[in-house]
């Protein structure tokens, strides 16, 4: 394995983190809710897809179906769990979403059992592809391409569209947004559901890197939060940069210093957050 492919692996891993976490930066930045339940939506997506693929549904269809389920669950949760929280303090938000995560884990294991779920990749993704000077797993290339496409789509969708303009207004000044006739509640709900759907999709396509186990929503929670925190809460580009950097750091560390990788990773996170408490790219509104 050359250094180049290690970095590629890291980027692929970072893309998974990005796909899942980008929705979290929305909730934490836009709705100002401390959201400890984001991993649950990725987990819901992964579990649904695993069951669907097991029942013979094609991978891509299962992935989108899973994203839909995660998105709908998100829309429902936004009304039932998050809306009562908007006016409460950080502690109430943390407790409520933490509790929600536990409930989701319990519900998923009750329905789907407590074993690790495997999500077999379709044949066209499980092979190797010639990338010029060596063979490289198609799956990881797919992750990188998908992540880049998503980042581009989000960039266009948020920087360039009317929806994006409204969203930015609502982030910077919710009261003003309401005054100029934007239905902030509807906008929040749609955006939240979209973020959850992306998390669900990320749970599916990333299942080979973040295995679908019963404690998934808790185990990787810190990881997703860290991407958002390091990137700067509410900042999409920051999340992208943070996800890729952390993905590469983690992968490189695991390869060269397997015994110390976990320390290095969390050590790096601690150092980054202490150095820049508002993240690498703090959103204006977060300051």
């Amino acid at each position: 394995m050359s250094e180049f492919t290690i970095v590629l692996d890291g980027i692929a891993y970072g893309m998974v983190l990005f796909i899942i976490s980008v929705g979290l930066t929305v909730t934490m930045g836009l709705m100002r809710v401390v959201n400890l339940a984001h991993g649950s939506f990725a987990m819901i997506g992964g579990y649904v897809a695993a069951v669907a693929v097991g029942a013979g549904v094609p991978f891509i269809a299962a992935a989108f179906g899973a994203a839909l389920v995660a998105g709908l669950t998100g829309a429902l949760a936004e009304v039932l769990v998050y809306r009562p929280l908007y006016r409460k303090g950080e502690l109430a938000q943390a407790l409520m979403t933490f509790g929600f995560t536990f409930v989701v884990i319990a519900a998923l294991t009750a329905i789907f059992g407590t074993s690790i779920k495997t999500l077999p990749l379709p044949e066209y993704m499980s092979g190797l592809v010639d990338i010029g000077f060596r063979m490289y797993p198609a799956y990881r290339l797919f992750l990188i391409a998908f992540g880049l496409a998503l980042a581009l789509a989000l960039w266009l969708g948020i920087d360039r569209s009317l929806y994006g303009a409204r969203l930015r207004t609502a982030v910077d000044n919710p009261r003003m947004a309401g005054a100029v006739g934007i239905n902030v509640n509807r906008l929040f709900q749609l955006t939240f559901a979209g973020g959850c759907a992306l998390a669900g999709l990320g749970g599916v396509v990333g299942s080979a890197l973040l295995p679908l186990e019963p404690y998934y929503a808790l185990r990787y929670l810190v990881l997703f939060l860290v991407v958002v925190g390091v990137g700067g809460v509410g900042n999409f580009k920051g999340s992208f940069v943070a996800a890729i950097s952390l993905g590469v750091i983690d992968t490189v560390a695991k390869y060269f210093l397997p015994s110390a990788a976990a320390y290095l990773f969390y050590g790096a996170v601690l150092a980054l957050l202490l150095w820049r408490p508002d993240g690498l790219m703090p959103a204006r509104s977060a300051q």
């Binding site: 810190v222 976990a262 320390y263 969390y266 996170v269 601690l270 957050l273 408490p277």
Partner: peptide
Amino acid sequence: TLILHTKGVTLMMLTLAIGALVAEVANH
């Protein structure tokens, strides 16, 4: 002394990260 300079969500994340770090060390 390290983390209490920060506040809010950042502080919460730092406590999470330290918890994860200690668990990793014990596991390792």
